[in-house]
Design a protein around this nucleic acid. Structure first.
Lengths: 105, 105
DNA sequence: AATTTGCGCAACCAAAAAGTTGCACTTATA
DNA sequence: TATAAGTGCAACTTTTTGGTTGCGCAAATT
C-alpha cells in the first residue's frame, strides 16, 4: 500500500477534507456532515491522510479532532520547485521580448 | 474517467516522466528506456498526461516528441497557495517568539 | 446500570487504474 | 517495393481504490 502525499491529495474528497481542517481541527462526524458520503468513508480518508502524516489527531474524551500537518504539504511545494524555476525563466524571457519591442519602438 | 492534474501526478512513474520531459522533449521509446516498464505502459501514462493537458506533442516524421506544459503545473501551485499562507503565518509567529526572547534578554 | 454516542476496524463489493499482449497504421530504410 | 521502426489503440487481466455494512469498544448521558 503506497502512502505518499501525492497519492493522498489525488482524491477530491480528501482535498476538501484537508481544506476544511486547515482552518480548524474537526471530528470525523463534524466533517462527514459536509459531504455526501458516510461517516465511515470520511474516516477511511482520514486514516489514509493520517498514515501519510498529512493529518494529526488530538484525543478529547471520546472525540478525536483531526488537524492539518501543514509542514507535510511542503513536500508537494518542494517537488513543484523544479517547475517553478522553469516558468519563472520563461516569464523572464517574455519580459526580455517585451523590453526589446519597447526599445525598437 | 477523472483526468485532473492531481490524479496525474499521483503516480510515481508519471512524476518521473514529467521530470524527464521538463528538461527536454522526448519520444515514448526514449522515455521507456529509463523505466522498468514496457513501452506501451509509458505510452499509456503519456496519454493520461496528454488528456489532462500536462503534456503536449510535437510530431516529427514518425516520431512524436512529448514536452511539458509547465503552465498546467501552476494549478497545483495555486491549490497550495492556501496552505502556503498558513505556514508563512506560523513562521512569522515563530519569528515573533524569537524576537520577544531577544528583547527579554 | 442501561443506553446512546463517537469512533475504529475488518470484511466485502463495485469501479477504476495500471500493466500486458496483439494488431494496425504510418514513416523511414534497404 | 519489401522490411523495419515508432506509435497509438483496443481487449484483457490484475491490483488498487473508494464505498458500504456490520461489528466492537470506550466515553458520555439517562
Amino acid at each position: 500500500m503506497r502512502r505518499d502525499v501525492f497519492q493522498a491529495i489525488a482524491d477530491p474528497t480528501r482535498r476538501a477534507i484537508i481544506t476544511f481542517i486547515a482552518l480548524q481541527a474537526m471530528t470525523p462526524n463534524a466533517l462527514a456532515e459536509h459531504f455526501d458520503t458516510s461517516r465511515q468513508a470520511v474516516s477511511k480518508h482520514l486514516k489514509i491522510l493520517t498514515e501519510c502524516e498529512l493529518v494529526e489527531q488530538t484525543h478529547q474524551g471520546r472525540e478525536i479532532y483531526y488537524q492539518l500537518n501543514v509542514n507535510k504539504m511542503k513536500e508537494v511545494d518542494k517537488w513543484l520547485e523544479q517547475f517553478r524555476k522553469i516558468w519563472e525563466k520563461r516569464f523572464n524571457q517574455l519580459d526580455n521580448v517585451l523590453a526589446n519591442l519597447k526599445n525598437k519602438k
